[in-house]
Simulated scan of single mutants.
Amino acid sequence: MVPLLPVFVYGTLLPGERNAHIAAQGGEFTVRPATLRGFRLFDLRPEGYPGIVPGETGDLIHGALLTYAPADWERALALLDELEGVDETPPVYSREQVRLTLANGEEVTAWVYVFALLGRLRQPDAVLVPGGDWRGVAGR
């Protein structure tokens, strides 16, 4: 059985972003600001979506923690897995457990979608996002 954990989002699934409606289709959830340490955020063009990969200890990703009601959790995770291409061949993202820090300093365990097509990141239109905040990317 898959552990019932909140999901850390950092790009198009953030509230107010273009895929936020997909997160909402999973059911009711609470949103809390959170950061993920040790990962790097890339802006993938022309696709227009982000990807994170493991980085250095000082790297930081800014995002939000979505905590679904237990009754909605499996449906939400299935929708998010489908959007992120977890079951495609090859997978676009993999869902992994990570430790996050909330705004109040509390550390929590959550799921996050890590970009799996590493060769794509070697192309010139995969741009490292300084500061690790997707909301600051111009022209998306």
Results as ranks from 00 to 15, higher is better:
residue 41 L to H: 07
residue 21 H to W: 14
residue 9 V to P: 04
residue 115 F to Q: 00
residue 46 P to D: 10
residue 41 L to T: 05
residue 44 L to Q: 06
residue 35 T to Y: 00
residue 93 Y to P: 02
residue 107 E to M: 04
residue 134 W to R: 03
residue 124 P to F: 04
residue 45 R to H: 12
residue 71 A to H: 11
residue 130 P to T: 08
residue 59 D to Q: 03
residue 112 V to M: 06
residue 85 G to T: 04
residue 10 Y to M: 10
residue 139 G to M: 10
residue 107 E to N: 06
residue 43 D to C: 11
residue 116 A to I: 06
residue 19 N to C: 09
residue 136 G to K: 14
residue 6 P to A: 08
residue 26 G to F: 12
residue 84 E to N: 13
residue 59 D to P: 00
residue 55 G to D: 07
residue 40 R to C: 12
residue 96 E to H: 14
residue 67 T to V: 07
residue 60 L to M: 14
residue 140 R to Q: 10
residue 40 R to Y: 10
residue 52 I to W: 03
residue 62 H to N: 06
residue 20 A to H: 15
residue 34 A to Y: 03
residue 100 L to R: 01
residue 72 D to L: 01
residue 37 R to P: 00
residue 2 V to H: 11
residue 89 T to D: 15
residue 69 A to C: 03
residue 35 T to M: 04
residue 102 L to D: 05
residue 78 A to W: 07
residue 104 N to H: 08
residue 67 T to K: 06
residue 77 L to V: 15
residue 54 P to K: 11
residue 75 R to Y: 10
residue 77 L to D: 05
residue 118 L to V: 13
residue 22 I to P: 07
residue 57 T to V: 12
residue 96 E to I: 11
residue 34 A to I: 05
residue 74 E to A: 14
residue 98 V to M: 08
residue 19 N to I: 03
residue 125 D to T: 10
residue 92 V to K: 08
residue 27 G to V: 12
residue 103 A to V: 09
residue 7 V to D: 01
residue 69 A to T: 06
residue 120 R to N: 07
residue 97 Q to L: 10
residue 28 E to N: 14
residue 31 V to N: 07
